[in-house]
Write a protein that binds this DNA or RNA. Structure first.
Lengths: 219, 219
DNA sequence: ATTACTAAGCAACGAGTAG
DNA sequence: TCTACTCGTTGCTTAGTAA
């Protein structure tokens, strides 16, 4: 990540707190970063062009909002620094089991994915996914996941269509080994898909609305 | 923390891994940072002047070693970023109980400290400290503590001498509330001092060599 | 080979100011 | 007030080169 953006985003997030958006003048932004108003203004324009922030200019005042992709920069840095400093790279995510529309089953049944699951994760998954709607409290940890590389599962083509690359993370749920699957290119939903050798709903006695805790390994 | 040093130290630590020192030419250092050999050289000189690294120039080659104060920059950034991103600011430290030389008892008995413990931590400590020699595995977490602000306990003067400022962290040990005390200015020993309302050795049945786990709150 | 000095080029910064 | 443009200046970066 290039450095200027990281510093600027960090300062904005610091001011914004949990909400991800904050009213801030260019003068104040400059003060926070130790820059002049002019440089602060230029920097904000750059951040906006890069898609890291959005601004609403309301009667000449501005509300700065960090975008998902801006947050990805911050969580990415956190991941990198944590790894360099040998911190624990496990992250807990809690949420509620919910029903998907069967696409999960469709995707994990594709042979192109299955062979890679076997090869890279060491198991052939039960042909279906457990959908977990992540509790808002764990949003940050979900973002850490999305900002991580994970284990790359290559995309492939069939006669009909192409299947995109996804990334997998080794994880544990209710004492069972599993993996969490995300699209390679970040999609900012609050739902994750868990695969496992076992039929998790059966094995763990889960039904829609059950609360689960998934411990994900980012390393 | 100023930015150039942070980036550079991060790159060095990444190369060095757990050992904190690495053989690296200025050309390679430049490549890693996306700079020329010349800039890399200048940067290393700056880092050395600031005391963040040490270099041994052996027959024109150099081994770069990150100093404690260099690591403090990195762990400080980790703390700051973690706080901004609302990460869990608790850190676990394990180690062995060992005997001090009684200085702990002497210090915590000073009235100037005691009134502040009561005021800022909410308890008057048992007049002695539990010394814990931190397991090397938890060195990183100890560094995170030292790089944190903590709860400031002001220094003071008596007729005889001056007592320096220290910082305290709320913590838990064996189900008991406690606090970990560090000198305000970092001293890089592997031993921490735990204070508590209770006589911990008695209450938890500890003796020299007992393994303990302390959960420290950095926030 | 290596590090690091010097000089020149260039990007980033802030003062002034318009809208 | 506010943001953001222009432009002169500062200071960082690199090429060249010494040791």
């Amino acid at each position: 990540m290039e450095q200027r953006s990281y510093q600027a985003l960090k300062a904005i997030k610091k001011e914004a707190g949990k909400s991800n958006s904050v009213y801030m003048t260019t003068v104040r932004f400059g003060q926070v970063l130790g820059f002049s108003q002019q440089s602060a203004s230029r920097l904000l324009i750059e951040l906006e062009e890069k898609g890291y922030i959005r601004r609403k200019l309301e009667n000449r005042k501005q509300v700065i909002e960090i975008t998902d992709s801006g947050l990805e920069v911050l969580y990415g840095e956190l991941n990198e620094l944590s790894r360099i400093l040998s911190q624990d790279m496990r992250v807990v995510i809690e949420g509620e089991v919910k029903s998907g529309l069967g696409e999960g089953r469709y995707y994990v049944s594709r042979k192109g994915y299955i062979v890679q699951f076997q090869e890279k994760l060491g198991f052939i998954p039960y042909l279906g996914t457990l959908n977990v709607k992540v509790d808002p409290l764990y949003e940050g940890n979900l973002r850490r996941m999305r900002s991580s590389e994970g284990i790359r599962i290559e995309g492939f083509k069939t006669e009909d269509r192409t299947f995109g690359a996804v990334k997998a993370f080794r994880a544990r749920i209710g004492g069972e080994d599993c993996a969490v699957i995300l699209p390679e290119r970040s999609v900012y939903t609050d739902t994750i898909e868990v695969i496992s050798k076992e039929y998790l709903r059966g094995k763990l006695g889960l039904k829609d609305g059950s609360r689960v805790r998934v411990t994900v390994d980012l390393s």
